[in-house]
C-alpha cells in the first residue's frame, strides 16, 4: 500500500513536469499539444478510495492549470474522468471488473485501448468545450478534440507499453 502511494506521488510529479515542460510546448502542426497526463487515470489503482482519487485528480488538473495558465480547465476535465472512470471501466471490461481478482492482466489489448480512448475523449471534450465556451465554434472544438485526442492516445499507448506496471 505504501509502495503504491509512493509510486503514485512520483507519477504525479513526473507527469506534471513532462506535461508542462515538454508536451505543452509541442505545437505539432501548429496547434496540437497533447495531454499526456491523462495516462495517470489509466495507471491509478482500481481498488482505491474514490474520494481520494477524485481529490488527486482535481489537484493534478489544478497544478497543470496553474502551470499553463488555463485556470481550472484541466481540473474540471480530470475530475470528470476520475468520477466517470468506474462507469467507463464497467463499459470496457464488463461487470467482472468489480470482482476482487480483476487486473489488467486478464484484459485484451483492445479493451485497454478502448478504455484509454474513452478517458482521452471525455477529457478533451470537456477541456476544449470549456476552453472555447461557445456553441458557435463547435467545428473548431471537434477538430481540436479529435486532432489532439488522437495524438494524446498514441502517446499514451506508447507510454503505457514503455512503463507498464508490475501487474501486467
Amino acid at each position: 500500500m505504501n509502495n503504491t502511494l509512493i509510486i503514485n506521488i512520483l507519477r504525479f510529479v513526473l507527469l506534471v513536469i513532462t506535461q508542462v515542460l515538454i508536451f505543452n510546448n509541442l505545437n505539432f502542426l501548429g496547434f496540437i499539444n497533447p495531454f499526456v497526463y491523462v495516462i495517470f487515470f489509466y495507471w491509478y489503482p482500481i481498488k482505491g478510495n474514490r474520494a481520494i482519487f477524485m481529490l488527486t485528480a482535481f489537484s493534478l488538473g489544478l497544478v497543470i492549470d496553474i502551470f499553463s495558465d488555463t485556470l481550472a480547465l484541466n481540473a474540471l476535465a480530470s475530475t470528470t474522468i476520475a468520477y466517470a472512470r468506474p462507469a467507463i471501466m464497467r463499459f470496457c471490461f464488463g461487470v467482472n471488473y468489480d470482482f476482487q481478482s480483476f487486473s489488467f492482466k486478464n484484459t485484451t489489448k483492445v479493451q485497454r485501448i478502448t478504455f484509454l480512448a474513452l478517458l482521452v475523449l471525455i477529457h478533451h471534450l470537456i477541456f476544449f468545450s470549456f476552453e472555447i465556451l461557445s456553441i458557435a465554434h463547435i467545428l473548431l472544438i471537434l477538430k481540436k478534440v479529435f486532432a489532439t485526442g488522437i495524438v494524446t492516445l498514441i502517446l499514451c499507448v506508447l507510454f503505457s507499453s514503455l512503463f507498464s506496471p508490475k501487474s501486467e
Partner: peptide
C-alpha cells in the same frame, strides 16, 4: 469540485 472548477473557468 466541478463547481469550483467551473467558477474558476468562467471567471477566467
Amino acid at each position: 469540485f466541478a463547481f469550483i472548477s467551473l467558477v474558476m473557468t468562467i471567471r477566467s
